[in-house]
Design a protein around this nucleic acid. Structure first.
Length: 357
DNA sequence: TCTGGGGTCCTAGGACCC
DNA sequence: TCTGGGGTCCTAGGACCC
C-alpha cells in the first residue's frame, strides 16, 4: 500500500515577510508587483489570511487589490501592506524546509518553491505517516517560523487535494477506502488540470461536481478534453499511480517582462531583450547546460493579444551572441509593418530557449 | 477586474521520410 | 486518376499550475 503526503506552505511569501518584519505581524499583506497608487499593472503573488478578508488573493490584479485596500481603509480598517517579492529569501527558506523534510523521509519531490510530495509508504500505516507529518510540521514551525498544511492519502492526487482541505496549518488524512467519497462532492475545479476553460466545458454539460463527471465514459472524456481525458477518468475515481520522483529535468529557460507602459521603442525593446539573453545564458550554465537549439520569442500587444515566433537551429548554439542575434531577428517584424501593420504598442516581450544540451 | 513571471504539456497542420 | 499509413520534427497557439 502506498502512503503519500503533500506539504504546502501557507501563504508562503507573505508568511516569510511577516516572519522577517515583526512590525507587519497581524497586518494584511499582499506580496506582488508595485501597486503604484492603483495604477500598477501586475498581480498579487501571495496574500496573507488577513488580506484575504479584504477579498485579496493570488493572481488578483494589483490595481484591484489596491482598490480593496482603499475601501477597507475608508471603513476604518488598516490599509494593506504591499511588498515586492524577495525571491532569494523565499528560496533560502524553501531549501531549509526541504532539508527538514528530507531528514524524515528519503523519497521527496519538491513540486514548487513551497510544496513537496513525500513517499511515506515505508511507514506502513496512516497512523505512523501522520506522526511523521506532525513532526515535520513542528520542526518547520520551530526552525523556519512558518506553517504548513499537510494532506496524507493513497496517492499524489488525493494527498494534494487533502492538503488544501484544511488551511492554514491543517492536516487531513484520507485513507484509501474513503478517497472516492472524499472527492465526490467537490467542484470539478478541485481536480488539478481542470481550469476555468475545462470547468466551463463541463458545466455546459451539466457537470459541476466530481460525482457528476462520473456519468461520462472514458471515451467521452477523451473526446471532450483530449488525450488527458483517460487520466481524468481515473482521477475522478481517486486513482493515480504517478510516482514521487526526486527530480525532473529542466526543459526550457526563459524570461519575460511587462513594460511599465506599452511601447514601440525599438531601443528599449532591444535593450531589454539583450539583458534577458544574457541572464538566460547565465542561468543555462548555472543549471549545468552548455547549449540550446531552439529560441522562442513572445510579443504581447496592448489588449493582451500574444504572438510567439520560434527558430530551431540545426546545430546546438552556445553563446549569448547567437541567442541575442536570433531573438532580434525574430522580434524585428513585430516592430514594423511586416507583423504589426497597425503599429500597435507592445506590452510585453519574452525570450525562451529549449532543446538544451 | 484587466490580467506577472516562471514553467509544463497538448493540439494541429505541414514538411519530410520510409 | 487522385492519390496509404506511420513516424518524427517544426511551428503557433492555448490551457494549466504555482
Amino acid at each position: 500500500m502506498r502512503i503519500i503526503a503533500h506539504l504546502d506552505m501557507d501563504a508562503f511569501f507573505a508568511a516569510i515577510e511577516e516572519r522577517d518584519n515583526p512590525r507587519f505581524r497581524g497586518m494584511p499583506i499582499a506580496v506582488g508587483s508595485d501597486p503604484k497608487g492603483g495604477q500598477g499593472r501586475g498581480v498579487v503573488a501571495t496574500a496573507n489570511y488577513k488580506a484575504r478578508e479584504y477579498g485579496i488573493h493570488s493572481a488578483l490584479p494589483i490595481s484591484k487589490a489596491w482598490q480593496f485596500s482603499e475601501e477597507a481603509r475608508q471603513r476604518g480598517k488598516p490599509a494593506v501592506i504591499f511588498l515586492p517579492p524577495n525571491f532569494e529569501r523565499y528560496t533560502e527558506a524553501s531549501e531549509h524546509i526541504m532539508k527538514i523534510i528530507r531528514a524524515h523521509a528519503s523519497l521527496v519531490e519538491q513540486a514548487s518553491v513551497d510544496e513537496a510530495y513525500v513517499d511515506l509508504s515505508f511507514s506502513g500505516s496512516f497512523a505512523k505517516a501522520e506522526k511523521i507529518c506532525r513532526a515535520i510540521k513542528e520542526e518547520i514551525q520551530a526552525k523556519e517560523k512558518v506553517t504548513a498544511s499537510v494532506g496524507i492519502g493513497p496517492n499524489k492526487l488525493i494527498a494534494k487535494i487533502a492538503s488544501g482541505f484544511q488551511k492554514p496549518d491543517g492536516l487531513t488524512i484520507v485513507e484509501e477506502g474513503n478517497a472516492e467519497a472524499f472527492l465526490e462532492p467537490m467542484s470539478v475545479r478541485a481536480i488539478p488540470g481542470i481550469g476555468p476553460k475545462t470547468e466551463l466545458l463541463f458545466t455546459a454539460r451539466g457537470a459541476k461536481t466530481v460525482r457528476d463527471l462520473k456519468k461520462f465514459s472514458r471515451e467521452e472524456l477523451v473526446e471532450l478534453t483530449g488525450k488527458w481525458g483517460a487520466e481524468l477518468y481515473e482521477k475522478i475515481r481517486a486513482r493515480d499511480e504517478t510516482p514521487v520522483v526526486e527530480e525532473y529535468e529542466v526543459k526550457s529557460i526563459g524570461e519575460q517582462e511587462t513594460f511599465a507602459e506599452d511601447t514601440k521603442s525599438a531601443e528599449l525593446i532591444f535593450e531589454r531583450l539583450s539583458m534577458m539573453c544574457k541572464n538566460i545564458m547565465a542561468r543555462l550554465a548555472g543549471d549545468g547546460f552548455r547549449t540550446f537549439k531552439t529560441v522562442v520569442i513572445t510579443v504581447r500587444f496592448t489588449g493582451f493579444e500574444t504572438k510567439t515566433r520560434t527558430h530551431t537551429f540545426s546545430n546546438p548554439q552556445r553563446t549569448a551572441k547567437a541567442l541575442q542575434t536570433e531573438a532580434f531577428r525574430l522580434i524585428l517584424p513585430f516592430l514594423d509593418a511586416r507583423e504589426n501593420p497597425k503599429g500597435k504598442l507592445i506590452r510585453l516581450i519574452g525570450v525562451r530557449i529549449e532543446k538544451l544540451g
